[in-house]
Simulated scan of single mutants.
Amino acid sequence: MNFKRHLPGLLILGVVWGLTPSVVKLALAAGIPPLGFGFWGAFGSALILSVLCASRRLRVPLDRPHIIQYSAAGLSGFALANFAGYTALQHIPAGFFALLVPLSPILTVLGAAALGMERLTPPRVLGTVLGFAGVALAMAPGAALPDPALLGWALLAALTPVCFAVSNIVAVRLAPRGTDALVLATGALYGGAFFLALFSLLRGEFHIPGQVGWPGEMLIPFQAGITAFAYLLYFRLIAATGSVITSQTGYIVPIAGVLWGAMIFGERMGWLALPAAALVFAGLWLVTAKR
């Protein structure tokens, strides 16, 4: 396998995923409620992937094992993750949120080890410690969080990678054998859209298109499009390079997220953000490096 051949794809995926926090902040600033935006993003991307499944003659099964998998993955990886992340993004910088993303693979390995699915080696233990130390440092004054008063919102945002990790484990434990990954992603997006619709209605945050100006409304199909594109690229990279190399996008997402936040919102990180990011990257490398 030629790693250089797939490097552009890894970079593009990291840049697209790093853009998401900034798109969410733009939508919230336009007046779209967090859970309402999350619903339309999940539902729209599910529709796009459904068309692609149909074009490839892939059926989305609706039997009990698949419904359970869609529901569990959609609830943890989309509904709860978006509830925590999108709500917190009303108050915290997009760049800070991007620094939390590498915690997902770290927590995935930790959770898998607790369930006996992975081996918890000393390097992985050290990597977990370094990753959490980096996030803690990012929350300190002079780092990525501009105001200590935002610590509560930062801790809420930190639940997002926890939800992603749970979703990753659920995807492995509950995925029916022989089902195409694109089909599972489509079903999980529909599951996430269902729970986000429910949550948004219960909290009075459901968004009816047309309630805000067109620049804000256009962010909905844009978010749905980049989400669907990212999932397609992700699965192609998984098939071509494997999960270990694809996980290296975890290094690109925080950098891209910080740069997007700086370009779109003029966010500026404190000097402690650099060592914080270095600790997170070191932890990610120790946890995911193939040995």
Results as ranks from 00 to 15, higher is better:
residue 1 M to I: 07
residue 4 K to A: 15
residue 15 V to W: 00
residue 16 V to E: 00
residue 18 G to E: 14
residue 20 T to P: 00
residue 23 V to P: 05
residue 27 A to L: 00
residue 27 A to I: 07
residue 27 A to N: 06
residue 31 G to K: 09
residue 32 I to N: 12
residue 33 P to D: 07
residue 34 P to W: 03
residue 39 F to D: 05
residue 40 W to M: 14
residue 41 G to P: 01
residue 41 G to H: 10
residue 42 A to D: 06
residue 43 F to I: 04
residue 48 I to L: 15
residue 52 L to P: 02
residue 56 R to K: 12
residue 58 L to R: 13
residue 59 R to A: 15
residue 59 R to S: 15
residue 61 P to N: 00
residue 61 P to R: 13
residue 64 R to D: 10
residue 65 P to E: 05
residue 66 H to Q: 06
residue 72 A to P: 05
residue 76 S to F: 14
residue 77 G to M: 11
residue 81 A to G: 04
residue 84 A to M: 08
residue 88 A to C: 04
residue 88 A to H: 10
residue 90 Q to K: 03
residue 94 A to W: 06
residue 97 F to T: 07
residue 99 L to G: 12
residue 102 P to Q: 09
residue 108 T to N: 01
residue 111 G to F: 03
residue 129 V to T: 12
residue 131 G to Q: 02
residue 132 F to R: 05
residue 134 G to I: 13
residue 136 A to Y: 09
residue 138 A to Q: 05
residue 139 M to L: 14
residue 144 A to G: 15
residue 145 L to A: 09
residue 146 P to E: 12
residue 148 P to Y: 01
residue 153 W to P: 14
residue 155 L to C: 08
residue 158 A to I: 00
residue 165 A to V: 06
residue 172 V to N: 07
residue 173 R to M: 12
residue 175 A to P: 08
residue 175 A to D: 01
residue 178 G to A: 09
residue 179 T to L: 12
residue 180 D to E: 15
residue 183 V to M: 10
residue 186 T to R: 04
residue 190 Y to N: 07
residue 191 G to T: 02
residue 196 L to H: 06
residue 197 A to C: 11
residue 204 G to Q: 00
residue 206 F to E: 06
residue 206 F to Y: 14
residue 206 F to T: 11
residue 207 H to W: 14
residue 209 P to Q: 08
residue 211 Q to R: 14
residue 214 W to Q: 12
residue 217 E to F: 12
residue 217 E to C: 11
residue 222 F to H: 06
residue 223 Q to P: 03
residue 227 T to D: 13
residue 231 Y to F: 15
residue 233 L to C: 11
residue 235 F to E: 12
residue 236 R to K: 13
residue 241 T to K: 11
residue 244 V to W: 11
residue 246 T to A: 15
residue 247 S to L: 05
residue 247 S to F: 03
residue 255 I to C: 13
residue 256 A to Q: 00
residue 256 A to K: 01
residue 259 L to Y: 10
residue 260 W to V: 02
residue 260 W to R: 01
residue 267 E to P: 05
residue 269 M to S: 09
residue 273 A to N: 04
residue 275 P to Q: 13
residue 276 A to D: 01
residue 276 A to L: 11
residue 278 A to V: 15
residue 280 V to F: 01
residue 282 A to P: 09
residue 283 G to D: 02
residue 288 T to W: 05
residue 288 T to M: 11
residue 291 R to E: 14
